[in-house]
């Protein structure tokens, strides 16, 4: 049944693009600010709740909510860097980790207090529609979701490639001291970067509600998923994050067919361990 396999793989790849967008948020932040955002998944869950709330209260499509959710997350990320993370930038890795882990705990607890432990989903008018392309059947939601992820990622690439601010941020990431010397406002650029990273995962969260239901404890799972993707693609590499997302989307789909579905994340981790061992800098990462 090659068509069945093809369907599963394509569906995996489409989900992989959303994973990739989420991981992009992590990668951008690490690449420039040099902070591993251990509260990544928890922030994303916040974005998912916000989207669900808007969709259910206002009857909007998640993709229409996306810009608002992304903007909210941008502000959150900007302030987080400015008022909290900036203060631990000079501390050793384990202190930064603990602060981010504490933040993650607090966020999960906050979602639990605000939204309760129940699972919340959205109902889409086109939830059961699909496109038929030859022998392939593509879920409409997945196609929309993946397209949205690609558009956001594309905008981000364009921003970093062509805008003056984007170039300044990249310069900061490449050479912190150099950026200071040429008079860039590094503190502000770091906060901007964190905001943009958060915006990315906010957009990913808004899209993600189209595929799965939201509950407060999803955070760690998404954090780990983003780690796997980002290391796979190469920490700090933007294209690597998208590629890593695709690879993980594929591998999860494949593992779901070949093994038990419950083993699919074991498959991803195994993949990650193999990559770390043969190419520690990741698929598209630069050698340190």
């Amino acid at each position: 049944m090659p068509a069945t396999y093809a369907n599963i793989l394509i569906s995996g790849a489409l989900a992989g693009l959303i994973y990739g967008l989420s991981a992009l948020g992590l990668s951008v932040i690490f690449g420039v600010v040099r902070i591993v955002n251990f509260a990544h998944g928890e922030m994303m869950v916040g974005a998912m709740f916000l989207t669900t709330l808007m969709v259910n209260a206002l009857g909007l499509d998640p993709l229409l909510c996306l810009p608002v959710v992304a903007a909210v997350l941008f502000v959150f990320g900007y302030l987080l860097q400015r008022f909290l993370i900036e203060r631990v930038a000079h501390l050793p890795d384990h202190m930064q980790f603990l602060l981010m882990a504490a933040l993650a705990t607090t966020l999960t607890a906050a979602w639990l207090m605000i939204f309760g432990p129940e699972t919340r989903g959205v109902r889409l008018s086109y939830g059961y529609d699909s496109y038929e392309v030859g022998p392939l059947i593509l879920d409409k939601t997945r196609v929309f979701a993946a397209a949205a992820a690609l558009v956001v990622a594309g905008l981000l690439f364009a921003f970093f490639r062509w805008s003056a601010t984007g170039k300044a941020i990249r310069a900061c990431g490449d050479n912190h001291t150099g950026a200071l010397v040429v008079g860039l406002d590094v503190r502000k650029l770091y906060a901007l970067t964190f905001g943009i990273g958060a915006m990315c995962l906010g957009a990913a969260g808004a899209i993600m509600v189209m595929l799965i239901d939201t509950q407060p404890y999803l955070g760690p799972q998404y954090t780990l998923l983003a780690f796997v993707i980002v290391i796979l693609g190469g920490l700090g590499s933007m294209a690597g994050a998208m590629l890593g997302g695709l690879v993980i989307g594929f591998s999860e789909a494949l593992a779901g067919v070949l093994f038990q579905p419950s083993l699919k994340s074991a498959f991803s981790f195994a993949l990650l361990i193999v990559i770390l061992l043969v190419r520690p800098q990741g698929l598209l990462g630069k050698r340190a």
């Binding site: 705990t105 607090t106 607890a109 979602w111 207090m113």
Partner: peptide
């Protein structure tokens, strides 16, 4: 639920 973890964090 969650209030303890919140303050713990």
């Amino acid at each position: 639920p969650g209030v303890k973890q919140f303050f713990w964090g």
